[in-house]
Design a protein around this nucleic acid. Structure first.
Lengths: 228, 228
DNA sequence: TGCGCTTTGGATCGCCGCTCCAATAAAGCT
DNA sequence: AGCTTTATTGGAGCGGCGATCCAAAGCGCA
């Protein structure tokens, strides 16, 4: 019987530049940014890197490992870019906004973070929040809960944003059309049964996700001030 | 040539009790409660219902449709069970807690909701929040952002809880062991570089998710009060 | 030059969601 | 009752996925 590898075309030549974990993570990031979370497949990675499954699995544990590493990468870059501020309130706002903007630019980061908020790369985020709460005179006994609440809020927004991006990436509708459509459906609700939602139609259509996010952070900051 | 259906064993008899969307959703809920999100597969559904793929796809659009319908079911039941309260603050807490407890009992609901928070079944949730914010004298201009912030907070906690449940369901470790492990890692961090996280070790080990969630809601409520 | 060790490529596996269509039962019609 | 039409069902099969496995290919050192 003919040896398996002898059949068909000859084996492709070995790649000249060595593979590495970093190269794989880099390629994964480009795939994710280009086509969203579903664009990251092992097959796509092999094509992009002109290699095989085995080579990739030699450097990383599994697909989740690649996604987690790419996410860590983005988070680390964000935290490095957020400079300090004398006013703790402003600093907290900057910190949260930094993460928001990063997730806005890379929605897959939001999805992954809301799935795994305990990654080592997020430790610096928690640490910064904790210190700023201290600077805000939040008592030690309340800091743990307060930090958790803020993180959960950010993660909630992150997940939501990721989902919106996923929905918009696939279809042919843009954000404005999507909001108009949703607002239209809200407007058609029975105003007696849903007065609040019905009335919120205009705001839904015109709101900015970023501004709404900031408004939410400010509500939390006001609540934390009450903890003093 | 022999007809395809003539080969092999005879075709299974047609089921006596008719299939329906409700029956499918019900079976899906049982699968999800029993084995988590990954337990809901088309194959498992066909086995449990003693039917085939075609019959199922005749009644539902796709797998996402089944998951969404099952989630709606749980949410509707939650809102029906939350009774009103004279004090708007208490009512908001009850409302949020109702959703929290439901997600705690059915973690897959949390994952699905954090992915799709705009389901029709959630409209009543938004509506209730909006009305209660009105009762809290939150000005109309701030109500939309405030409601969004609260929903995002709840969703963030929901996603987190779902992830925790997923992690714990698969392995052999329980919640206490998991927290001990995380706390252990936190404790080993450099206290100079991570003073807050390092100090939070004890609280991490002893905290109750439910109490922490309530604490977050209270911070939020305090922030709302400042909007008046 | 030879030989072990690391790195690579791709065939292969099992599972998934989903499509498609023949078989069947039920309902309507004459 | 007999025939036709429609709704419903069961399951073979498709393409794609993550993951495994192993022979081939380079590499470093003796």
């Amino acid at each position: 019987m003919v040896k398996k590898t002898a059949k068909g075309s000859a084996r492709a030549p070995r790649r000249t530049e060595g593979l590495s974990r970093d190269v794989i993570v880099q390629a994964a990031t480009e795939l994710l940014d280009g086509g969203g979370e579903s664009a990251l497949t092992l097959r796509a990675l092999t094509v992009r890197l002109r290699t095989g499954y085995g080579a990739i699995y030699h450097h990383v544990a599994d697909k989740g490992d690649v996604l987690a590493a790419a996410t860590d990468d983005v988070v680390v870059r964000v935290l490095a870019g957020v400079v300090g501020d004398a006013d703790p309130q402003k600093a907290l706002r900057r910190l949260a906004l930094g993460l928001f903007d990063a997730i806005d630019a890379h929605p897959w980061v939001g999805a992954e973070l809301s799935r795994q908020p305990w990654r080592p790369a997020m430790l610096d985020f928690y640490e910064s929040i904790g210190r700023l709460l201290d600077a805000l005179d939040v008592p030690e006994s309340a800091r743990f809960d307060a930090a958790g609440a803020l993180v959960n809020y950010v993660m909630g927004v992150a997940g939501q944003n990721a989902e919106n991006a996923r929905r918009l990436a696939g279809g042919d509708t843009d954000r404005a059309a999507f909001l108009d459509d949703a607002a239209e459906r809200w407007a058609q609700l029975d105003p007696d049964r849903y007065p609040f939602v019905h009335a919120a139609t205009t705001r839904l259509r015109e709101h900015s996700d970023r501004d709404q996010f900031i408004a939410g952070v400010d509500i939390f900051l006001a609540g934390m001030a009450a903890l003093r």
